[in-house]
Design a protein around this nucleic acid. Sequence first.
DNA 1: CAAGAACGAGAAACCGGTTTGATCAGATTT
DNA 2: AAATCTGATCAAACCGGTTTCTCGTTCTTG
Lengths: 363, 363
Amino acid sequence: MSIVDVAVRAKVSIATVSRVINNSPHKVNQVTKDRVLSAIRELDYRPNALAKALLSKKTMSVGIIIPDISNPYYTEIVRGIQDISDQYRYGVILLNTDRNQERIIRHIYFLREKAVDGIIFSGGIIHGDKVLSALKPLKERVVVIGRHPVDFPAVVIDNIGGAEKATEHLLALNHRNIGFIGGPEKSTSARDRLTGYRHALTQRGLPFDKNLIRKGDLTYNSGYLLARDLLEKERPTAIFADNDLMALGAIRAARESGQRVPEDLAVVGFDNIPLSAYSDPSLTTVEIPMYQVGRAAMEMLLNVIDRKDTEQFRWFNTRLIIRGSTGENRLRLRNQTDLTFPGHLIRNGKPLPETLNEKGDIK
Amino acid sequence: MSIVDVAVRAKVSIATVSRVINNSPHKVNQVTKDRVLSAIRELDYRPNALAKALLSKKTMSVGIIIPDISNPYYTEIVRGIQDISDQYRYGVILLNTDRNQERIIRHIYFLREKAVDGIIFSGGIIHGDKVLSALKPLKERVVVIGRHPVDFPAVVIDNIGGAEKATEHLLALNHRNIGFIGGPEKSTSARDRLTGYRHALTQRGLPFDKNLIRKGDLTYNSGYLLARDLLEKERPTAIFADNDLMALGAIRAARESGQRVPEDLAVVGFDNIPLSAYSDPSLTTVEIPMYQVGRAAMEMLLNVIDRKDTEQFRWFNTRLIIRGSTGENRLRLRNQTDLTFPGHLIRNGKPLPETLNEKGDIK
DNA sequence: CAAGAACGAGAAACCGGTTTGATCAGATTT
DNA sequence: AAATCTGATCAAACCGGTTTCTCGTTCTTG
């Protein structure tokens, strides 16, 4: 089923068919045009995007490289990206790296072979010449999310400010011995969050005690282990974790050592993953507008592709969400009407129906 | 940067380059081969997948159509699909429908234009001739997840059995007035879960009271509204919800009406989304092995593509996970060591490190 | 009425690969 | 020495589109 079939059926050349499809400036007689259109309809013909792309150098598809789609932190980004790309009729090829350098490189080459129009690179760390040289031929067609030691256009999150807010919140609750369990040294966002923690202390004229710092790998297990060690050796009254999963791990460690949260130990996380609103106790955390970040990244990429001038950076601010793990009265949860639900609940949720019909169904 | 550049640099024809790349049976002199290989290396050349696909009719990419990637229920499927497709070097194009028929059709045509080698269709409902006729030309290259009124190979989940287990669990706890809040009539999985509920009652010789049944749209809001109505009119002692989100909505409705969960009202959900383990109270629910379902779907699709004989169905069983919302002692959560974490925590989690180094970091 | 403009359509080149068929030098067979 | 075979390479067709260039009609216009 190709353009030739249509041409034969409409008794015209393939050039004419092409013109009708793309309604090109080159004029086509209305009668001929109608004949072609009905031939297309009868055959349910669609032009082959591959052939089209081969000549036009536009595949109308972009690649997204993320660490792990089953991590809710990234699903929101992806959803944001897809909502924009869908709107502009772009296809999205999604690739997981599991933070494995070899896979990152493999995926970049894969996307190059597929001749995608652009790439959004999020999470993981761009380091090493290999990754950079793999990305080089795609220069001018890449947008990164987060701070990376490269000069691609980037969507950046104010991790420093977020960490400051979180730490200030703990300081305001009169905690003076605040532990920090963070991510890997190489991660810029992890470094920024540590910087924010430090800033907040310094601003109050408090000392920065590096014995209160632990670094791990952002997993629940890592949070659990680091917190266990920290609680045993330093007896902090509060812990600020680099992400929500580590914070939840810390809560578990606290409980196992017989401490209550938030009474004996206050805990703050980062990211506001859906879990954090529903954990027991619910987690005070710093919200990042991931869905918006995803949208912004795709919008920037489209600009880059179209060679429109784009700002080199777009900043997103964070928001502190105070919940149970730092002493919020548990009961307030019950009457709380602005529970932060997972993104898809908000987005897809139709406005609250006012009435039920006689069967009790939603109208 | 094309095959011609390589040919020129190696002083051979493009045919020879092609042979070297695909190490074709047609022999190439070792000396020439080396010359070509080093030319390829020096130019960092990769063959254009589009051009390749145009001739070979294989794009090495598949499409996945799901309702919503930000819904954790589907992320696990996607992750399963991707782990297999990555292994076989397939690319995956992901498309969200938001259960919108027009979009489903648009996405199918989009994938046809992209000439994907196959499609996995999950969630949403295949109904109407339009969707079917759009899928028709792809016949023999489609795998669906869930029961659909079509004869494509399918991965099917034992929803009936799962609902039976859940209802039996409530019956065993001596509940006799069990409300059911379900999904839309058109959804086969929602119908199956209702059937399972009914079976369980019938098997115990108990009556099926249709006043205890409500149907909504699987959202948190819907669960909340249906439960509120149900609690007011029928005063059930337990509610079985069609999915975890509705169950969580029901818990909220119960609390607002002053009832405690599980003391005054027991609640069971379905799906075991990550939230359900961490909600307060944690949710008794029926687990579906979504990650495995995704893997199976992709494996079946690969078989279909390669024209290998594949079974027309693959069944997956469910598992009842008993937690706080049906009366599990809350304290047990603290000592529980097999907490069900989100998939990505299990999959990516390295084995628990045994030791910390002198800085307290994980080695 | 002849010449130029406007219209409409087709032939062919091209995109970047794979594959078939042709060519040709050198080795082997008769 | 002629005929056949073998190994290595290349030219060209092809995949399914888009676009440029050419050309034949018909319509204007001086």
